[in-house]
Design a protein around this nucleic acid. Structure first.
Length: 289
RNA sequence: GGGUAGAUGCCCGAGUGGCUAAAGGGGGCAGACUGUAAAUCUGCUAGCGAAAGCUUACGUUGGUUCGAAUCCAUCUCUACCCA
């Protein structure tokens, strides 16, 4: 039947327009897999598809969360699953496109049976030193501690959080899930867009300029209360500083470019590990959407 | 024209005789990563080499010294000040 088709790749690689092409030829509908395009009121900064594009093919899961809400991978799957099923029930092909590797991974491979993060507990842990957190994890789950990058506060606190909330060992819970991943991969179909670094960097720079010229300042200005999660969007902070007069335009632009390039690099690293994704263009095809 | 300060690796910047291929930061490259992920974290970053090592490096040229990014002279450039 209409198995989903995945279009992945780094930011600014041309996923949205390629998704549109695929949707038109495969009789499909597009489903967002981008953590920040989920938010309403962040369309310009997150480079969400334009109204024109959205008018040509049905687009789902764009602008479905308030900026005050906090997205996470689990919530994303909860939102995406029914939408995908609904598209399939109408005989259409879901074209899932986006660059949020973790969100995609949850969608394709499922979530490990781990507890959801708890805001109160996180606040408590944030007040502690890294050493204290490491000591806590080593006590509750030495196996997990030995597998975790202990310099990475985020990883240590999540592991500790799992132990505390579940009353079990994070290492045990994680092992349960890891056993079935390879079987799932063989069933999936999708592509990852490849572009040379110079090409990608040029596209990023062009996009930043057009973003700033086409309403990004007004957009950021209009966002009042923003969840800490939503506020992490690349460009949000920088544009805030620009508006406040703490940054000049050129510096703001360069900071956004650098952060975007670094993000794109991390995305490439992530998708490289997803062996089921077929590189696109496959050979030396011309690729200039 | 006179004076003062300065010129360091892709960029910023520390270093004021040997422990300096040169701190630190940025950028770049590579990697990790199942509920904050546009996050968080790790490694590498003059050239050649698997390595030992060799070569080229702190504006220019020359000098002092066993030894110079560091001291002296010269020239070039930059900034500011006085004319």
């Amino acid at each position: 039947m209409n198995e989903p088709f995945y279009i992945c790749g780094p930011t600014a690689s041309g996923k949205s327009s390629l998704a549109l092409e695929y949707a038109l030829t495969l009789d499909g509908e597009i489903v967002n897999a981008d953590a920040f395009q989920l938010y309403r009121g962040l369309e310009i900064v997150s480079a969400a598809p334009s109204a024109d594009e959205r008018a040509r093919v049905p687009h789902h899961l764009y602008g479905v969360l308030e900026p005050t809400e906090s997205a996470d991978a689990q919530l994303y799957v909860k939102l995406a699953k029914p939408v995908i099923a609904e598209i399939q029930s109408r005989g259409k092909t879901p074209i899932i496109t986006g660059g949020s590797g973790l969100y995609l991974k949850f969608l394709t491979h499922g979530a490990a049976p781990l507890p959801t993060g708890d805001a109160t507990l996180r606040a408590e842990m944030d007040a502690k030193s890294l050493e204290e957190l490491v000591a806590g994890l080593q006590e509750l789950d030495p196996v997990e501690a030995s597998r975790t990058a202990l310099q990475n506060r985020r990883f240590v606190s999540r592991a500790l959080e799992i132990c505390i909330l579940s009353g079990r060992k994070a290492s045990d819970l994680r092992d349960q899930w890891e056993s079935q991943t390879t079987a799932i991969s063989s069933q999936l179909r999708g592509i990852v867009i490849q572009r040379s670094r110079p090409d990608l960097h040029t596209r990023i720079a062009l996009r930043t300029v057009s973003m700033l010229e086409n309403g990004a300042l007004e957009e950021v200005n209009a966002l009042s209360g923003v969840s800490s999660n939503c506020g992490k969007a690349i460009g949000f902070r920088e544009i805030r500083s620009l508006i406040a007069g703490d940054l000049d335009r050129a510096t703001c632009e360069e900071l956004i470019n650098a952060a975007t390039r670094q993000y794109a690099k991390r995305q490439e690293t992530w998708f490289r590990r997803e062996k089921w994704l077929v590189p696109y263009p496959t050979e030396a095809d011309n690729f200039n959407p």
